[in-house]
Design a protein around this nucleic acid. Structure first.
Lengths: 154, 154
DNA sequence: GCTTGACCCTCCCATGATGGCAGGGTCGAA
DNA sequence: TTCGACCCTGCCATCATGGGAGGGTCAAGC
């Protein structure tokens, strides 16, 4: 594998010899789906993606690294917009860690807000389900609540 | 009311005399936006919505009650699909409270799963931000993590 | 050389709940 | 009659993701 040949290499094989990979290998190396790799390129997160003569995309090691960065960021719940900022900072040697920390802190606040909302729902629902017999009779405090508080259910 | 009249009443005024309301009043009475009222009708959650001769929608008291039911259910995080089930049960006098409780319990599980996910993100991010100096220097454990764990950031 | 199967390309559509806007009709009061 | 508030339909956008159609490319085996 990877030994050089004498025949006029189609650019694809040539590119692969130069350490570039196609989108299938990029998927396996990054854990990002083919669809999403193309999408991130469209969003401008992957720059200078080259092509073979047959129009196949070619990725280098930096691209793969960027894809892993995006994947990890998504795992931590950052939006694509935030990831765009984080990527810029990552690629900027003159960044201040303060600007990164700021983005992360704002994101943590967003997450905590959402957690509070969800927890509020859980609390209400657990109270209601606790009050609900869960048997064969139709009487149900859960429906009563949804239908307008403990009042009538018309 | 509901008595026949001598003048050729535009059906709208006639309908309003019969206790029906237009979409504007339905919005104010239910807290559901005009857009969403129309959307819920399209989804089949509001049935038998009548119209004036001028094609204005007309809602009765049951419709308003249903809209409030939907709104409350959304507040508790139920999906439209779940709300459809809940509405069916609400309107079924032969329902068992067990079936309602089952839907609610499943929803609580979903919520708790999501809360756990978000909390995991928060935990990781708080650890990272705690480790990040947040000053003018570029060194940043947050970026290091995103770039592939505590390893290099190439 | 030809076939075959895996892979790649672009373009369009769908999700779920919600909002916005455009272009046009209706109502009621002044 | 006019004006402002209201209603109608229909299309587009969000956000991240996936699905599929229709078609081109590549490498291996015959």
């Amino acid at each position: 594998m990877g030994t050089s040949v004498h025949k006029p290499l189609p650019e694809r094989a040539e590119a692969i010899e130069n350490g570039l990979v196609d989108i299938g290998q990029a998927t396996r190396a990054s854990g990002v789906s083919v669809k999403m790799i193309r999408h991130y390129e469209e969003l401008g997160l992957l720059k200078n993606v080259s092509r073979t003569v047959a129009n196949y995309r070619l990725y280098n090691a930096q691209h793969i690294h960027t894809l892993r960065f995006i994947k990890r960021s998504r795992t931590l719940g950052f939006s694509m917009e935030e990831i765009q900022e984080l990527l810029s900072l990552w690629q900027d040697r003159r960044r201040s860690s303060a600007s990164v920390k700021k983005i992360a802190a704002r994101h943590v606040e967003d997450l905590q807000t959402k957690i509070s909302e969800l927890q509020g729902m859980v609390n209400t629902l657990q109270h209601l389900t606790h009050c609900c017999a869960g048997d064969n009779r139709p009487d149900c405090p859960i429906l009563d609540d949804l239908a307008g508080g403990p009042a009538d259910a018309s």
